[in-house]
Each structure stands twice: as structure tokens, then as C-alpha cells.
């Protein structure tokens, strides 16, 4: 084999692989540029006063998206209220308490739950959860509560697996020291392990939040829909994602641009979360 030709071939291969690696960067840049470009008419022609009002009626030129932002915030918060205790409990169970077989079973269960398509979970919400809530509360059954339960179930696997990793990185010497000083298992968990794993747990919650903010189809099947503020936890409303999903098909012109502006808001939220995660994970290696 001619040495110089093999070196130049390696050089070419390296350049090609570099270009492939940069596809990830190209992808996110394309998404940001395109979504921004499509939402410019909304920002210039509709204007912030109209956008940040509470009335949505494209026929009369009212493009207020506050109701949808509130919907997203409420359902995400509700989802986290359900998912965080479930996920933290499961992660603690897996790392501190589970007998081996039970641990394997729960681990597999969480993996499978993470892989269940959102449309399937939404279908359960629509055919089982909503009728149940409707009967219990004598209302439509759709709305914030149903969406929160669905989102809680869906973001639980994300939070569990990251929280589990965070708990596992706490050196076992910490635990042994605490137990050796006479602390009970729970005292050790509460006063030693959870504080030591805090940055990782924060990352887990933030990424779970990301899952909840971005979830679309499953929420769309149980949210209502309606373009007004919800009067109770079981009255129809909308979120950013469900509004985009349901209206993009028949939209054009300014209305479409406003939907892209809503996508832009979602992008800002997710980029903000990535930056927070980066900040939270930057420092801190455990002292051994």
C-alpha cells in the first residue's frame, strides 16, 4: 500500500466524518432559522400587544396566545407534581431498597413505559381517563387535570432514569459513613444522599419538564379543546403544542405565522432548559 495515498484517504475520510458530525449543528441552526423566519410576520404585523392578549379569533384579527401559554404552564406544573414524587420514589427504590429481582422488574417497566407511543397513551386518556374524570366530577372531563395525569405518566420515565444515574454517582462511602454513625436508612437518604445528588436531580426534573412542555398528541386528546382560560381543572382549554397541532392544517398567512411564533416560544423554552442543565452540571465532582 502506498503510504502517501493512504494518508490522504484518511484525511478525506476524516473530513467526511466531520461534516456528518456537524449535521447535528446544521439541524438545530436550520430549525431555529426557519422557525424564526416564519414567525417574523407575527412579530411585526400582529405586534406584541395583540399577541400577548387573551383573545384568540383569527377571523377578527385577534391573535392572543396567553391562554395557550398558561395552558402549557399549568399542565406542565401539574404533570411535574405527579411525575416528580413517582420518579424520585422509583429512583430511590431502585438505588437504595429494591431486592434484585424487583429492581429488574421495575427497571424494565420504566423502560417500556418510556417507549409507549404518545398517541397510545393519549388514546387511553381519551377512552378511559376522560370518561372516568367526567363521571367523577360531573363535567366534560377534559382539561388541565386529565392532561396533567397523562403528562405525569409520560415524563416519569425520563425523570426516573436521570435521577437514578444521579443517585448512583453518590459515592457509597458517604452512605457507609452515615450508616456507621448510626443514622437510619431514611435519615441517610434524606440528609446525605439526596443533598449530594441535588444537581443531578435538578437536571432530571428539568428534562422531565422539557418532555411535558413539548408533548403534543397525548395532551391534544384530553385537553378539550377551547381557546379560553379553564374555569376548573376539568374544563377544556389549550396548550401551545395542541393549538399548533390542531390549527396548522387549516392555517395560512398571519395565522400560520402566529402558530410559528408559538413554536418559537417553545424553542426558547427548550433552549433555556438546555442552558440551565449545562449550568447545573458544569461544576462539582464528588470528593472521594
Amino acid at each position: 500500500m502506498d503510504k502517501s495515498s493512504s494518508i490522504s484517504r484518511e484525511w478525506i475520510v476524516k473530513k467526511i466524518l466531520f461534516v456528518l458530525a456537524m449535521m447535528a449543528v446544521l439541524g438545530i441552526v436550520l430549525i431555529i432559522v426557519l422557525v424564526t423566519k416564519e414567525s417574523i410576520p407575527a412579530l411585526t404585523k400582529v405586534g406584541p400587544f395583540n399577541l400577548f392578549s387573551t383573545t384568540w379569533n383569527p377571523k377578527t384579527g385577534d391573535y392572543g396566545i396567553v391562554v395557550f401559554i398558561v395552558g402549557t404552564l399549568l399542565t406542565t406544573l401539574g404533570g411535574l407534581l405527579i411525575a416528580v414524587p413517582l420518579a424520585l420514589g422509583t429512583a430511590l427504590f431502585l438505588t437504595q431498597m429494591a431486592p434484585q429481582r424487583m429492581g429488574t422488574l421495575v427497571t424494565r417497566g420504566v423502560e417500556i413505559l418510556a417507549g409507549i407511543p404518545s398517541i397510545v397513551i393519549g388514546w387511553i386518556g381519551f377512552t378511559l381517563l376522560v370518561p372516568l374524570l367526567a363521571a367523577l366530577t360531573r363535567s366534560a372531563g377534559t382539561g388541565i387535570l386529565a392532561a396533567s395525569i397523562i403528562l405525569g405518566i409520560m415524563s416519569m420515565p425520563t425523570i426516573t432514569s436521570i435521577a437514578r444515574d444521579a443517585l448512583e454517582t453518590v459515592p457509597s462511602s458517604y452512605k457507609q459513613a452515615s450508616i456507621g454513625l448510626g443514622a437510619t436508612r431514611w435519615q441517610t437518604i434524606w440528609h446525605v444522599i439526596l443533598p449530594a445528588a441535588r444537581p443531578g436531580l435538578l437536571v432530571a426534573v428539568i428534562l422531565g419538564m422539557g418532555r411535558a412542555i413539548g408533548e403534543t398528541v397525548a395532551v391534544a386528546l384530553v385537553i378539550g379543546p377551547a381557546t379560553t382560560f379553564p374555569k376548573s381543572l376539568t374544563t377544556p382549554t389549550h396548550t401551545l403544542t395542541t393549538k399548533i397541532l390542531m390549527e396548522m392544517g387549516e392555517s395560512s398567512g398571519l395565522q400560520r405565522s402566529v402558530l410559528f411564533a408559538m413554536a418559537f416560544a417553545l424553542l426558547l423554552l427548550s433552549m433555556g432548559m438546555i442552558l440551565t442543565v449545562r449550568l447545573a452540571t458544569r461544576k462539582k465532582e464528588f470528593a472521594r
Binding site: L30, L245, L259, L266, L267, S270, M271
Partner: peptide, 16 residues
């Protein structure tokens, strides 16, 4: 880039 892509909601991918 990859981390950012993984947090973009799928509906945003859809309309993109």
C-alpha cells in the same frame, strides 16, 4: 447541537 436537538418538541419538528 445534539443536546439542543433532543429537547426540541416533536411538533416543532413537524411544522419545521
Amino acid at each position: 447541537g445534539a443536546d439542543s436537538l433532543s429537547t426540541v418538541p416533536s411538533i416543532v419538528y413537524g411544522i419545521f
